[in-house]
């Protein structure tokens, strides 16, 4: 079997804009699933609302495309009522951090055995480019026409603080690392949170001087550094530029988890 066999061929082509990073994340996820040897009939994809959340509909397994922000409580019901199922959640920054923020911290606290993959494009893509809780301060969107005046949420740090057993952040540029991190998350009992920074050329890049898809991918390549490296820099008194995003594995631990296969 190849990762391509996991696609629901009669649903393609997808709705994503050309240059969107979501397809990369779906590919990485399915490559990880395929490497793990999961069975289709034992796997469920759950998602909320937004571009990211359309992903569940392109996969051949049972899938639940739910209401805005609520993918995690739906997934909680699926996993706790049948722990034999592998449950993966696709979500986005608006879905997870804004309308679904409360569910996010509580799912991490409970440490339910889910793999949560957040496609963080720092914008509401599907509704036309409104600011989200991860839109960087100063960035332009249709609802922050003078630059966002709010600080952005750091979702991975939030997941670490709330208790998830596995947390990693990569970008759609870091395909190999991302695939490995998703696989590691799926193998870790408890809640695994994998945040992927993804480019949204249509609604983010276009308004923020990253007009070409390659500009945004280049930006993610050049403005990311391993979290451990950034920590070392801070410890040694070096100044870390504010626009550098920490990537890598944030935590891997063994807190008691719920809904683990018996």
């Amino acid at each position: 079997m190849s990762y391509q066999d996991w696609f629901r061929q009669d649903r393609l082509p997808h709705i994503y804009c050309s240059g969107c990073g979501n397809g990369t994340v779906i590919n990485c996820t399915l490559m990880a699933v395929d490497e793990l040897g999961w069975k289709e009939e034992e796997t469920v994809f759950v998602s909320g609302i937004g571009c990211s959340s359309r992903a569940s509909g392109y996969i051949v397994t049972d899938s639940l495309h739910t209401t805005h922000g609520r993918a995690l409580p739906f997934a909680t019901g699926v996993k706790l009522s049948n722990p034999d199922l592998n449950v993966v959640v696709f979500t986005g920054d608006g879905d997870l951090a804004a309308i679904g923020g409360n569910h996010f911290i509580h799912a991490c606290r409970r440490n339910i055995d889910l793999t949560v993959i957040c496609m963080n494009n720092q914008i509401y893509g599907m509704t036309g480019g409104q600011g989200s809780p991860t839109t960087p301060a100063g960035a332009l969107s249709t609802t922050t026409p003078y630059g966002s005046s709010e600080p952005a949420f750091d979702l991975s740090e939030l997941a670490v603080a709330a208790g998830a057993n596995f947390v990693a952040r990569w970008t759609s540029y870091h395909v190999k690392e991302l695939t490995r991190a998703i696989g590691a998350g799926m193998r870790t009992p408890g809640l695994s949170f994998i945040e992927t920074m993804t480019q949204c050329p249509t609604n983010y890049g276009r308004r923020n001087k990253l007009r070409q898809v390659t500009d945004q991918v280049e930006f993610m390549k050049n403005h990311t550094a391993l979290r451990q490296k950034l920590d070392r820099m801070r410890e040694s008194g070096q100044k870390v530029p504010t626009d550098i995003i920490a990537i890598g594995e944030f935590v891997r631990r063994d807190r008691p988890a719920m809904g683990v296969r018996r």
Partner: peptide
């Protein structure tokens, strides 16, 4: 399971129902 709010409660019972 005691959920974090009623939105989550309703969501959880729908998820559970799909497993039969």
């Amino acid at each position: 399971i005691q959920m974090e709010d009623e939105l989550a409660s309703m969501a959880s019972i729908i998820g559970a129902s799909w497993t039969g």
